[in-house]
Amino acid sequence: MRSLGNEAGRGISHWLVMIGCLLFSSLSLSQQLTGALSLRLGPGIGYPVSIELPSGTYIDITQRRNTWLLIRDERDEGGWAKIAEVGESGGLKERLAWRLTELKKESNGEVVGRWFNFNQGYGLALGWKLPSDYGHWLFEIEKASDAQVEWHSLASWYLSQHNITAHSYYSAGMGLGVAQENSKSQIFSEYGDAQQAVYGGIELALGLRPTKQVNTGLSVRYLFAASSADADETVLSWYWSFGI
């Protein structure tokens, strides 16, 4: 009877140890350094080095801000280090694994905000960019208001985008839109003549994509009105955009 009780006890303790190991291994990202690691006071190379951890120190990684990790040692002293430096010092578990990576990822598109400038002032635009086979569709609302000038526009653009480097791209495209301007505005109409105009245009853009989630760029648009009677028929406008 005693031996049976001992076996049952050993079995239970064995399972408890197993569960404990599983639980704690998933909660903590602890690792022993194989080289020295300098920690900075903040997440940037401008911050001074606050502590240098020797090889063999056990560390915990508690937080990440972009390419920086917050590291704490066994005495709970901490600081920031670049992911690459933590990896070089053996602070990240080497995990060679094969996985399938999507090159063409399904996306719901991105929200794009733009600040633009043309001969009659500047304004803001908000759009939705949807990926398609060879580029993107952009549906956009624009609003510009100077002291007296009012301009509203609704447009649809098709932009073909190509990568220059891993983090930069250029794009070109064309669009169609309708605009409403007031009597003080002389974008597609004469002064004193409020009107609606249907316009077409082309766009060239250069952009940066520092991470997968965000992009920013500069673009130039050349617009021409199809229904303008005798006023200026073309407009050149500059845009700074931010998409997320």
Partner: peptide
């Protein structure tokens, strides 16, 4: 316009490139 015909390709995760580092991101 370029056409991406490759949709999937295998990739080795190195510590530097590992984007699924299991740490809270702020």
């Amino acid at each position: 316009a370029d056409v991406d015909t490759l949709i999937y390709q295998p990739k080795i995760l190195s510590p530097e490139l590992k984007s699924d580092l299991d740490v809270a991101e702020y």
